[in-house]
Amino acid sequence: MSVRYLSCGDTAFSVEFGNEISPEINGRVMALHAAIGQATKGGELAGVVETVPSMRALMVCYDPMATSRAKLEPEIEGLIARGLPTDMKSRQVTIPCCYDDPEFAPDLKEVAERTKKKPEEVIASHLASRFKVYVLGFMPGLAYIAGLEKSLYLPRRSQPRVRVPRSTVAIAMDMTTIYPFESPGGWHLIGRTPLWMFDQRREQPVFLAPGDSLTFQRIDRKSYDRIARDVEAGTFDWARLVKSA
């Protein structure tokens, strides 16, 4: 697999592992992201400011006062040549989701009709999907989470909604997402989690991270309300949703 180094001006470049969405390519992106993080913590790779993983590429941001492209690119090449870790540890995250309230899931019926399923079968497929967080972006804490069961693939809505409530769970194409803020959105809304994907009161304001493995857990409206109260009050125990694999 050939690696391409693409210029992003004089303060960043992109290390591109391929031009398709595949778990293997993304695995290498995440491995290099982790390897550079390790190296900079250990005092190597002076001048690297941060790295930004996406589906198939890692953007390496650097300070041209502290290093240069000519110096840094071979250092990154060396890191890749030394061999990237293949057994990346990932967090196993469970997201409670309420699918039952029609206000939370305005598109459930339409998704069911278009995928020729019953609404209960749509929910079952979403629950059975083994998701992975590929990339965060577009807005703080918004995760593109791939791994949706094939039978649920649908294009985005032709008419995006102006307002999607915070914490809505939605699907489109081969992905699911959770809106961190109220915002416009063109995905199909099938549920809502009581969790906030972004909460600036938390020490780690963004809950999900690239590389996380993720499944949804069905909750009823009563549980939703109880968790929502705790999240709002800032007393929710987030650690119980996360297992290190």
């Binding site: 001006g9 589906m55 198939r56 953007m59």
Partner: peptide, 8 residues
């Protein structure tokens, strides 16, 4: 396929 956006 979406990738990182640098300044400028």
């Amino acid at each position: 396929i979406s990738d990182g956006i640098g300044p400028g």
